[in-house]
Every structure is written in C-alpha cells, then in structure tokens.
C-alpha cells in the first residue's frame, strides 16, 4: 500500500515551550492509524501542524507526494486533507445545512448528492437540517463536524478526540461510524484519549509521550503490550 501522509521530524513550539520533539510517522492508503497518549502529549498539536494551523520549525509534512510545510492552512483542505478538530468547532450560530455547505466551501456549489450522502450516514442531521447547530446535543455536533469534513471528499480524514465528552453509547456509535467510513475507503488518522477503543479499530498505532513517539505497533500488539496496558488501558 502507498504511503499517503508522511510526517518527517517535526518540531513545534508554543513560544519557548517545545511541544513536539522530532515526531515522524506515516499513514498508508486505506489504513486507520491512531495516535494515543495522555493529556498534553502533543496529539492535537501534531494534527494541527499537519493541517497547517501550526507550523513546524524543522522537517516537513508530505501528503500524496506534495510538501505541505509551506501551504497556508486554508489551502490544505483542497489537497484532500480534512480535520475534525478537537471540541468539534461547528459553527454554532449557523444551521446544520449551512455548516455542511461550509464543509463543501472549496468545491464551490454544493452537490446535492454529497449532502444526501451525509444525511444518509447521519439521519439525525437530516431531521435537524434547518436547526441552529448550537441547539444540537454534543453527539449530534460531533456527527455534524464529521459530516462537514466529509463534504470536502477528503482522501485522509483526521479526527481529533471524537469521543470527548460523549456518553458511552454515543462513543460506541461514533466508533462504529469511523469503521463504516473506513470500510467505504476513507483513510483515517485518529487521535484519542480513549486508547482501548481507538486501538481496537486501528491498523496501527503510535504512542506519544511529552512530544515524542515512544512506541509503535499494530493495534493488537499495542493492546497486548504490558507497558501500554499499564499506562493507558487501566492495568
């Protein structure tokens, strides 16, 4: 399988704080890859750097053979990379449908088939398409954020803590949806604190600790590793 995303030795700073220290990893076509780690390990920072919201001092990000390090954030999505950011960040004062239209912003006119496709996957959104996104529940907002990202037809979908703050039943639903998307051919880079759930569905995983990758392996290997069990899976 081809590597579609290659992150090579990135170093990211918040002022004088060295948040990401030489992180390198790759994602191959059709995989689910997960980055796990504790709070502050640098998972979200890594995703934000790939999507261009933050910049690395060294190294680079290559997507489909194209160097993204100098690409401004608003051009990244048109290369086929979509990020569902931490905390969803849907446009709370816009309707569900308008949020989805914003997802298709780079495509110009909204294709009704794309909209229908998202509504098929998330029927709840169809019921609420005229509703202001701020009135949706947390789970619905997460679905909206994912639907919005899908509207741009991403080749790689990056999800930042999609299960955060959701009831267990909803977490399960979200992970089911991620697997469905994967089955339909979307490559997924998943950042999660819920390491067990993430590793269960992932082909491969990387473990981040204070800005460095400390372990890597297939999902099953990491689930079985005693060190990982102790640190992230609750013994």
């Amino acid at each position: 399988m081809d590597t579609i995303l290659k992150v090579d030795d990135i170093n990211v700073f918040y002022g004088s704080i060295h948040a990401i220290k030489g992180v390198s990893f790759e994602v191959k076509q059709g995989e689910i890859v997960t980055l796990i780690g504790a709070n502050g390990a640098g998972k979200s920072t890594t995703l934000n750097t790939i999507s261009g919201l933050l910049h690395s001092k060294t190294g680079g990000v290559t997507f489909m053979g194209e160097d993204l390090s100098k690409t401004p954030c608003h051009k990244v999505v048109s290369k086929g990379l979509a990020l569902v950011p931490e905390g969803r960040r849907v446009f709370l004062q816009m309707t569900v449908q308008e949020n989805l239209e914003m997802g298709a912003y780079i495509r110009g006119k909204v294709n009704p088939d794309d909209l229908e496709h998202v509504f098929q996957r998330f029927p709840r959104l169809k019921e609420r398409r005229k509703q202001i996104a701020g009135t949706l529940s947390g789970g619905e907002q997460q679905m909206l954020a994912m639907g919005r990202a899908l509207m741009s037809h991403p080749k790689l979908l990056m999800l930042d803590e999609p299960s955060m703050g959701l009831a267990p039943i909803l977490v399960e639903q979200i992970f089911d949806i991620i697997q469905e998307l994967h089955k339909d051919g979307t490559t997924i880079l998943l950042v999660e604190q819920n390491a067990r759930a993430a590793l269960h569905i992932a082909d491969r995983g990387y473990v981040l600790e204070t800005g460095k990758i400390v372990t890597t392996g297939t999902g099953a290997e990491l689930l079985d590793s005693p060190a990982i069990k102790k640190a992230y899976l609750g013994g």
Binding site: H74, V76, A82, P85, Q93, M94, S152
Partner: peptide, 24 residues
C-alpha cells in the same frame, strides 16, 4: 450567498473556517 456564509463562519471561528478552506 456562499461568500456571505463564509463571512459568518469566519466571524464565529477563524480556525475552523480556515479548515474549511476559507481564506480568512
């Protein structure tokens, strides 16, 4: 309009608007 809606998106959340491909 598409541009007008993008304007509202920017007014709510510049970062998220950039992720949509909107030139802030």
């Amino acid at each position: 309009t598409r541009v007008g809606k993008a304007m509202r998106a920017v007014s709510e959340d510049k970062g998220a608007a950039q992720l949509m491909g909107i030139n802030v």
